[in-house]
Amino acid sequence: MSHVVQLEDIHKTYESGEVPVLAVRGVTLTIAGGEFVAIMGASGSGKSTLMNLLGCLDRPTRGRYLLGGTDVSNLDRNELADLRNQKLGFIFQGFNLLSRTTALENVELPMLYGRRHFSTREVRERARQSLDIVGLSNRADHFPSQLSGGQQQRVAIARALINEPQILLADEPTGNLDSKTSVEIMGVFQKLNAQGITVVMVTHELDIAHYCKRNLIMRDGRLVSDTPVVDRLVATEQMQRIVTAETDAKLIA
């Protein structure tokens, strides 16, 4: 499989304070197409900074970043914006949906900023398909405030999917969700991954990382561990167990 992401000795230093902060100090990493990677680490380990670099929201201070074969380390603001729009799908911990805007319109957003212009009908059609993938087509006209956390995150995933990106990047996607909903969201990621979409996510929950195929651990701005997941959890099975447990609890009570 071709390499979707190729990082070569990436450094990121923040100069804003009195003392320069070395957030990422020399990360070399390749991620192939179809992988499902979890980046873990304590807070301050540099995993979020690495995620921002991967997501082209930020530029490395030093090093080379090849995304789908093209060097993106030295692109300008607008070129990075186009990359985010076309090649990347971003999912945040806090969902980051536009309030007072329907689920469907939230999903449409990246298409409106694409360099290619689509007709309103085409945009609507694709947004519906995207919502369909995450199983939310029946909630298209709901506002974020009318949706549960899990549903909001699924809208965010649909939004990330709409421009058919090469890679989905998720920054603590289950951080604001309860455990059952977290499993539900991981199920969505596993389903997408099974269809061939590369997924990279940041998490600090070990059990969530177990749904992925490969675990990276960061400490002090460096990668300290890179292991494949052996006893991988399958979301649908876990969901079954939770549901059974719930029913049992009710039977006992």
């Binding site: 997501g55 929201l57 603001r77 607008n78 914006a81 186009d82 985010r84 729009n85 076309q86 971003f90 980051n96 949906l97 536009l98 957003l109 990246p110 900023y113 694409g114 939004r159 421009n163």
Partner: peptide
């Protein structure tokens, strides 16, 4: 600000 951040993150240019 957050809304602007979201728009920029999904690919809006500064000009947009």
């Amino acid at each position: 600000t957050r809304e602007i951040g979201i728009r920029l993150a999904v690919g809006a240019h500064g000009r947009d």
